[in-house]
Design a protein around this nucleic acid. Structure first.
Lengths: 132, 132, 132, 132
DNA sequence: GTGGTCTAGACCACC
DNA sequence: GTGGTCTAGACCACG
């Protein structure tokens, strides 16, 4: 399964699903035209309320990442790959900028910041990046 | 004034106050024993409800950053400086690690990440850090 | 209902709720994982304002006695039983020590003190203790 | 000085003064007819606000422990000794009963209670009791 | 003047 | 349905 959900994440569950699906599309795990897992199936797999999955899928439709294929389910929309890749970079870029700005404004010097960043980068699991 | 509040920040207002006071202590703007702005004064200055300030101050007391001096107001507690500095670094470290891990897990390579980070660092306002 | 509140107690209502819930956990009336009464329900039962209950529950969360289960309510946290038992004994021990020290310092002899204590113990309702 | 005040006691300062004076009378440190320290003197000695002392003295007058002697100050009233002794015992008795009842109701057995009490009694400073 | 508490009622996001 | 947040206004004790 390409999707994990952590109820204690702080982020809303439905939001984690939205992000998870978008990242799956951006990373190629879900190709254009392919069907996303059904609401019931995903809800069962993640052990969450189907309403929550439905809400996430609704937003993914309004974001034009998924589209309803009558009688078959929800498929990855045409053009979703580019949209998701762009959004992913934008999203991450914005969050990085925000966190760094906040940190800097709190009184830490850029030197101290770089040190923290290097430590964080060193702690990353190896060999997963670069698929997109 | 060493404190700003943005109601559209996503973060709760009372939480922004808590963080703001803690950062002010960590950065030396509020020294041990000094009185924090009174509930009513801060509420007036920030144009928010006194209860919201009171709630923030309440939490700051349970975090041992402020302490009640009966009839005079809330003073910065002994040991608050160290506590706030430690907490500031921990908080920022945790957020940086979280954002980078998320970004990396989303499929970006470390090289791409570094590029985004450099762009964000370059965009920081100069010459404010290093006070602590 | 395992919880009573007396507005004329001197102790703040929200504090009585905090203590009541902790004692309920310590005494086994609320087991780990079980949901505490909802804010609105408890407010209705105790005939007080929901905000007052919410405030108590807020503190119980920061004390790691309750934890938020999104959309379902507040559940007794893991480890809350031990925490509450320990705290109960500490709290009572501290109060007893404080009262006795005060009494002794006020000029009563230990003999007089013991007499008062025996009278108080004799006045206790029988057969309720010993559950923990 | 027969009087100590602890601003971090939780108990209001003026109340600590009231109790302190009453206990001083009950214990014989202040005899009937003797003058209590002046408001200014006591305020200086305890490093507190004169208003606070004045408030305590006001209550002591309404409790008939002190009485105004025109031009000389506040003297211990006739009959104050008996009144204070009685009140002292009542006060302590009530507090002991309350604490023990609370403790017992919280789920502790009488055996556990006795153990806590013995520990507290053992921790008392020796040889001060019995003056009254 | 200070903070502490409580009530009342509103709006929000989430499940 | 759940809790979380904010506003508004009142009353209290304390110094």
């Amino acid at each position: 399964m390409f999707l994990h959900v952590d109820p204690a994440n702080g982020l809303a569950i439905y939001d984690q699903i939205v992000r998870g699906i978008k990242f799956a599309v951006a990373g190629g795990a879900l190709a254009s035209g392919e069907l996303a897992p059904s609401v019931r199936e995903l809800a069962r797999d993640l052990a969450i309320n189907p309403n929550t999955v439905a809400r996430a899928y609704q937003q993914l439709q309004s974001d034009q990442v998924l589209e309803n294929v009558r009688g078959r389910g929800l498929a990855v929309a045409r053009g979703a790959l580019e949209r998701c890749r762009k959004e992913r970079v934008q999203l991450i870029e914005r969050r990085i900028a925000q966190v760094l700005a906040e940190a800097h404004q709190s009184g830490l010097s850029e030197r101290q910041l770089r040190e923290l960043i290097e430590r964080a980068l060193a702690a990353l699991p190896r060999g997963k990046g670069g698929n997109a």
